[in-house]
């Protein structure tokens, strides 16, 4: 019964996450950017813009300029999260279909992934404290902002509990996800019976579902930010989009 509920929920959440995110990306990509609004000094070439974007995404460059505390906590959280996610791939991939080299790579990340969990939680706690203690940040926070951090913290802690305190049967867990992946519909391998696992999976489902409707859209959003992704070349290149062209030809409003 429980297994069936989780199985259906995972299908639902996965579809929502993928379709929802794809739709958002489609929206962001199709809304035009009629004017050049790059925040200068900006790169004057396309490779320059890639480099700027890389620095933003991989190093949080602007945040670093802005506030060292938020940068430290935010960076710990995101890098931790990225490593933890990579570590999790093990549970969803079938080694038979993964190139050996990649699998070896994944195995190598495993030990780092362990510490990454701590970094992630520490970063999140730092961010949560900042949100509560710094009056400016408290002022701009809605309940959802606090809850989002809480959600991630509990996801992290429940994961750590399974790793260090109340070890879960990883083999059956993997069998469960494999049976999902191979669409063994209504013939799913049973989920191991574990409270921390229920908590962990439930909150992850929530996270997947809210992703396309929440501020988590910053992840795709950053790539579409015109102040960051535009080339500083307005004198050389005339920018025109459909609605500005319509105005120019006298047919638009």
């Amino acid at each position: 019964m429980i297994t069936t509920i989780y199985a259906l929920a995972f299908y639902f959440a996965t579809i929502l996450l993928i379709v929802g995110l794809a739709y958002r990306i489609y929206e962001y990509a199709t809304v035009p950017a009629p004017l050049n609004i790059a925040t200068t000094p900006a790169p004057t070439t396309v490779p320059g813009v890639w480099l700027r974007m890389f620095r933003e995404v991989a190093l949080f460059e602007s945040l670093f300029k802005s506030n060292k505390w938020t940068w430290i906590f935010g960076y710990m959280f995101h890098v931790g999260l990225a490593l933890v996610l990579i570590r999790h791939l093990r549970y969803f991939l079938d080694p038979r279909y993964v190139p050996d080299l990649l699998w070896t790579g994944l195995e190598l990340v495993q030990p780092i992934g362990k510490y990454a969990g701590f970094a992630m939680i520490a970063g999140l706690v730092g961010l949560a404290l900042r949100r509560i203690l710094v009056n400016r940040v408290r002022y701009i926070s809605s309940p959802s902002d606090h809850l989002m951090l809480l959600l991630l913290i509990v996801i992290g802690i429940s994961g750590m509990v399974m790793q260090y305190i109340d070890r879960t049967d990883i083999i059956s867990l993997k069998n469960f996800f494999m049976s999902l992946a191979y669409f063994n519909l209504f013939d799913w391998q049973p989920l191991p019976d574990s409270l921390p696992l229920m908590v962990h999976l439930t909150l992850i489902l929530i996270l997947m579902i809210i992703f396309p409707f929440s501020k988590l859209l910053h992840a795709p959003g950053v790539f579409f930010s015109p102040t960051r992704n535009q080339v500083d070349n307005p004198r050389e290149k005339r920018r025109m989009v459909a609605w500005t062209r319509a105005i120019e030809s006298g047919s638009g409003k």
């Binding site: 809304v31 950017a33 945040l63 802005s66 506030n67 949100r131 940040v137 002022y139 930010s225």
Partner: peptide, 20 residues
Amino acid sequence: RYRSFRVYLDSCVKCGACTD
């Protein structure tokens, strides 16, 4: 009409970096 408006309304995480 404006990608900036669209993306910026969605993307803010309330990190507070701009507050000061």
